[in-house]
Simulated scan of single mutants.
Amino acid sequence: MPERSLEFGKFGARGIKGGEAIARQLDRLAGGITSPVTTRRGLLARLNYLTRSPRARRAARAAGLTVTDRTLRAWQDGTRTPSPSNLRRVEDAYRQVRRRNVARHLLARLNRGGRGTRVEIHPLNQSQVTRPHQRVLEYRTMNVRRWENLVGAWAQGDTAALDEHWVGEYLSDLGSQWGSYEYVTNIGFAA
């Protein structure tokens, strides 16, 4: 039985951790504002989302957006422009608050009343690996019925826990080949 990858990429393989691929797909499913935060429209949309209610303001502050209300109003009015570090804080706070807000709805969609969701696992890219070191990998599918741990770790922004749950609870369903799918090019699913 294969173990966890200790020296991933040593022979030229390319890919990302499965937990990171799941987080990317969950972010796509969560949707949100598509305009970049660096544009006026994108900044205003994020600020409106983060300040539309007292609850949203508290969540934004908890997520790291700690500027004063006066500064937020100046940014919204256009009299002042946020620094690049504050733009990153706005984007990070928006992502965290958005994840928490949609997690419950997304969880219900993925669990589908106990039927679960089909997950497609695209193996890592071995195009740069020499022939003797290549593994025989194939595209795999599996049905994930319980998404609570994955969506919970994603909503908290804990990528390490997300990866641990993915490897520890779900990859073992692939049998003896599970270690070959710890790193992937993509994991796809829809809800």
Score class of each variant (00 low, 15 high):
P36V: 03
I33A: 09
N111V: 02
S83T: 13
A59H: 08
T51D: 04
A45Q: 14
T71N: 00
G31E: 07
I33G: 04
P84M: 02
R112Y: 04
R73W: 00
R52T: 07
G114Q: 04
S85N: 05
A60G: 09
R100H: 08
N111W: 04
T71V: 15
V97S: 04
A59M: 10
V90T: 08
R28C: 02
G64S: 09
L50H: 12
L107V: 10
T38H: 14
R61Y: 08
R89A: 15
D27I: 00
T71D: 02
A63V: 11
S35I: 00
V102T: 14
T34M: 09
D69T: 12
G32D: 02
A74C: 04
G113C: 05
D69R: 12
G64K: 12
L43M: 11
R70C: 05
Q96C: 04
D92G: 12
S85F: 09
N48L: 13
L65N: 07
V97L: 01
Q76M: 11
L29N: 10
S35E: 15
R98D: 03
R88W: 07
R95T: 10
A62S: 13
S85T: 15
A30D: 05
L29E: 15
G78K: 01
P54K: 13
L107F: 11
T39F: 05
L29P: 02
G42C: 02
Q76T: 01
R55P: 00
Q96E: 06
T79F: 03
V102F: 07
D77R: 13
A62D: 11
T34G: 08
R109C: 07
N48I: 05
V102C: 08
D69H: 03
W75Y: 14
A56V: 12
L50D: 06
T71G: 03
R98P: 02
Y94R: 02
R95M: 11
A45R: 13
A60F: 06
A93V: 05
R99I: 01
A63D: 09
R109V: 02
A56Q: 14
R112M: 08
R58V: 15
T34P: 01
L44E: 04
R100Y: 00
R58C: 01
T68W: 01
Q76I: 07
R41P: 00
T81F: 11
G42T: 04
Y49F: 15
S53E: 06
A108W: 04
S83H: 13
R99D: 02
T79M: 04
G32Q: 02
R28V: 10
L72N: 00
A30R: 07
P84N: 08
Q96F: 10
V97W: 01
L29H: 11
A30F: 09
S85I: 08
R104I: 03
P36A: 09
T79G: 01
R104H: 04
